[in-house]
Amino acid sequence: MHKGKGMKFVGDSRISSERKSNIPKDYSEYPGRTEAFWPNFLLKEWLAGSVFLVGFLSMTLAHPAPLEKMADPTAAGYIPLPDWYFLFLYELLKYDFASGPYILFGIIIIPGLAFGGLLLAPFLDNGPGRRPHQRPIAVGMMLLALTSTIWLTYKSASHVDWEQRADANKPVPPSEEVQIDKESEGYALYENNCMSCHGEDMGGTAGPALIGIDYSADEIATIAKEGIGSMPPGQFSGSDEELQKLADFIVSVNEQ
């Protein structure tokens, strides 16, 4: 680089006005068959990358990304499972020495030793030799960690019936959810007379759901007055006109 007196700059900038030639370095004196990255090697890399991308896209097309039902915090009995690359940590916590009173072993000490060892590997394995047989302890620890991780992942994944899980949790299209107009007169009547048993969203609580029922407005009006099955009579209190509005409202929700 040119230094000292006599330097010329572009305008008032610090860019030198002397142009250097733009010729790639000469790699012919490097040992072995060294190649320039640009453009020789990049072309080959580009080809390998394209093959990889085609393979990846084919896999993506063959297996659409899964999506389960919308999250429902009240869904009791749902067995949670993390993504596959966290299964080994999840499985570890099922062992007696890593759960309950020894939970700290499972969440801090064992993963901490493993990942801490990984992070500090260059300082723990600081001998000069690079070949695996020159550093048996480091290689042995890594093989042990690798085998345990694969074993734990296998143990965790092998007893899961993945197809059954996917079938039981198929997404429900939003169009099949009914819209309930909670501002309507009919809903106000529903709120006063039916909601305590049939739920805020007509999904049922003590009584059955009122969505997906196959009754006419007149039949609903009769049931509201006289009851059905374990539903006692006299649940509805109001005028006949209001009864008609309530029945029409319930029918209108079911027509969606």
Binding site: K25, R33, T34, A36, K44
Partner: peptide, 13 residues
């Protein structure tokens, strides 16, 4: 962009 690719890392060789 301008760097060398040594022989031992080059799958072509």
């Amino acid at each position: 962009a301008d760097h060398e690719v040594p022989e031992h890392v080059n799958p072509a060789h």
